[in-house]
Nucleic acid binder design. Structure first.
Lengths: 145, 145
DNA sequence: ATTTGATTTAGAATAATTCTAAACTATGTT
DNA sequence: AACATAGTTTAGAATTATTCTAAATCAAAT
């Protein structure tokens, strides 16, 4: 699989349009790479994967595309400690789990009620537009998933 | 104020001892800097503040000391997006609020029950030893605190 | 067709952090 | 007290993710 499904292509164009940005082959390809393998790749990894489909793309363009996708709300950045930024096209409310042993990052669904509750701990003067929840630890043996 | 209170000096020595590390003037001074002004300074800021009390200290030592304090559990690292790491000697359970306008980071106390609850969203195979909760947004007008 | 502005590109620049190797300090042992 | 050992500090070099720059390319609109 290496091309965007019609549905995703539509979502991409719509979102880009909405922010006055053009739909380009590079943006489509990068978005496709993210949707195809949902393992929170770094920019470097996205670059490698994209290059295999589009050998002339440059690192700068990958960064540009990722930045564009993030600013259009199609992709989220995940920062774990000081490690390279990772990218995630999962838009539903979720937390992240970072395994210290493998370095892998997993999505963990969070009931939406929980998110409400979290916002509740903020004193009145704080107005949050985003919440980030990251767990760190390890996966219990047997289940490497 | 520029020297460690007796109580804090004791806590520092105990913790360092416990991990087989020496209590040095550099570590004491850096720890004192963090306790004195609890505004989540970056390593650069810690360096500047420490240098004013101990002009011969080097940047590398500041990083070494911070790393030592973190590994002994006396200080926490706070990473917000890709910005420089900040340091925080608040050991009670709390979240962070990052103001997009000023860039400042605030501690937000979190009821301990909430932390328990958060851990509850993790499926069984995930064993977390730390939870990080970061809000981003802005302070409502009037209260710049 | 031509202008205009957006996008892509390669490579240089930046900046936080880590590494390296030498100098220094403290501690324990005889 | 002198010495060996290991831990710590230091300045500066190295690393690395990311951003910047300026030129080339592309697309849309007159």
């Amino acid at each position: 699989m290496n091309s965007l499904k019609q549905m995703d292509r539509g979502a991409l164009s719509d979102a880009l349009d909405h922010f006055g940005q053009r739909t380009t082959p590079q943006r489509e390809t990068v978005f496709g790479v993210l949707l195809n393998q949902r393992d929170h790749p770094t920019a470097d990894e996205v670059y490698a994967r994209t290059k295999s489909q589009m050998p002339t793309i440059s690192m700068a363009t990958v960064y540009n595309c990722l930045e564009t996708l993030v600013s259009c709300g199609l992709v989220k950045q995940v920062n774990i400690e000081r490690e390279p930024t990772r990218y995630c096209p999962n838009l539903s409310p979720h937390a992240h789990f970072h395994c210290r042993e493998t370095g892998r990052v997993y999505d963990v669904p969070v009931p939406s009620g929980m998110m409400q509750e979290l916002a509740g701990v903020l004193p009145g003067e704080y107005e949050a537009d985003s919440v980030e929840l990251v767990f760190r630890g390890h996966l219990s043996k047997g289940k490497t998933k």
